Simulated assay, not measured.
Amino acid sequence: MISDEELNRYRLDGTRIRVVRDADPANDVRGFVMAWDEETVLIRKMNRKVIKLDRNYLYQPFSEERKVPE
């Protein structure tokens, strides 16, 4: 699970992130961290729509090479 500190750093820096949900890259969510609680993260996608995702997914900066979840 991603830490509050890491989410806060992504939000404050305005880092574009990738949320890897499974092995298929087409299912990744790309956007910016808006808010979070104990179980979910609110992501603003590039088309300005907002999506709520589980904190157990893999969150990484979009500029890094994609890692496959375990």
Rank of each mutant, 00 (worst) to 15 (best):
M1K: 06
W36A: 01
V41N: 05
E6N: 08
L42F: 06
I2H: 01
V50N: 11
L7I: 02
R16W: 12
R30D: 13
N56D: 15
R44Y: 00
E6M: 10
Y59W: 02
R30H: 15
Y59Q: 05
R11L: 04
E39I: 07
M46I: 11
R48V: 05
D13P: 08
L58T: 09
A35I: 05
Y57C: 04
T40C: 12
P69F: 04
R9P: 15
D24P: 11
V19N: 03
E64H: 10
I2V: 13
P69N: 11
V33I: 12
N56F: 01
E64Y: 09
E64Q: 12
S3V: 02
K45S: 05
R44I: 02
Y10I: 04
V33K: 01
W36H: 09
V19A: 03
P25N: 03
R48A: 04
K45Q: 13
R55V: 03
Q60A: 05
M34T: 15
D54N: 12
L42C: 01
G14Q: 01
K67F: 14
V29C: 06
I17G: 08
F62Q: 13
V20M: 06
F32A: 04
N47K: 01
R21Q: 15
D13E: 15
V50Q: 08
I17E: 02
P69G: 09
V50R: 00
E70K: 13
L58N: 07
M46D: 14
E39Q: 08
E5M: 07
E64R: 10
K67P: 03
N8M: 02
D24M: 07
N47W: 00
Y59D: 02
S63V: 11
E39V: 07
F32H: 12
E64F: 01
I43A: 01
F62C: 07
V50S: 09
E5F: 07
V50M: 07
W36M: 02
D37G: 05
V68M: 15
R55S: 04
E6A: 06
Y57Q: 10
R18I: 00
P69E: 13
G14V: 11
K45N: 06
V50Y: 09
R55M: 06
F62I: 00
P25H: 03
K45I: 02
R16D: 14
W36I: 02
V50P: 15
R44E: 12
V33T: 11
E70P: 15
V20Y: 07
G31F: 04
L53V: 05
F32S: 11
V29H: 09
I51Q: 11
L42W: 09
Y59F: 13
S3G: 09
K67E: 15
R44K: 07
